[in-house]
């Protein structure tokens, strides 16, 4: 059986993951969690309770912005969207992760292994 991605890597990738999902448009916590599962084929194990502190930290850092709305069912729900600062951060994160991935690919494919 395949081992799940270890938690330090899950935590490190949480910011670019959330920012990437929000670059597709405004959405709320539960939908983000479902997207993470879908995109990773279930290999990134995000606990339900872990997501919200991440969202609040990103909001505090000005990378995303939340707003409360009433759903048709009359429930309060917080929707998040990417800010311009968040877009810049996503672009930086993308470059960093590509650099890491590229270096690992090279080392696995080359004579280092």
């Amino acid at each position: 059986m395949k081992k799940p991605v270890y938690k330090e890597l899950v935590a490190a990738s949480s910011r670019p993951m959330v920012l990437s999902i929000l670059s597709g448009g405004e959405t709320y916590g539960y939908e983000i969690l479902k997207q993470v599962q879908l995109l990773s084929g279930g290999e990134l194990e995000w606990s339900d309770g872990m997501l919200y502190p991440v969202l609040h930290r990103l909001e505090r850092d000005g990378l995303i912005k939340g707003r409360w709305q009433l759903t048709d069912a009359g429930r309060r729900r917080k929707y998040y969207r990417l800010t311009s600062r968040g877009k810049r951060q996503l672009s930086t994160d993308r470059e960093s992760w590509r650099a890491v991935y590229g270096a690992l690919q090279m080392s696995w494919g080359g004579s280092h292994v």
Binding site: E26, T27, Y28, E31, R67, W68, Q69, L70, T71, D72, R76, R77, Y79
Partner: peptide, 11 residues
């Protein structure tokens, strides 16, 4: 305190 109701089906 949410401000308005979502348009049906928007999200």
């Amino acid at each position: 305190r949410p401000k308005k109701t979502l348009a049906q089906g928007r999200h």
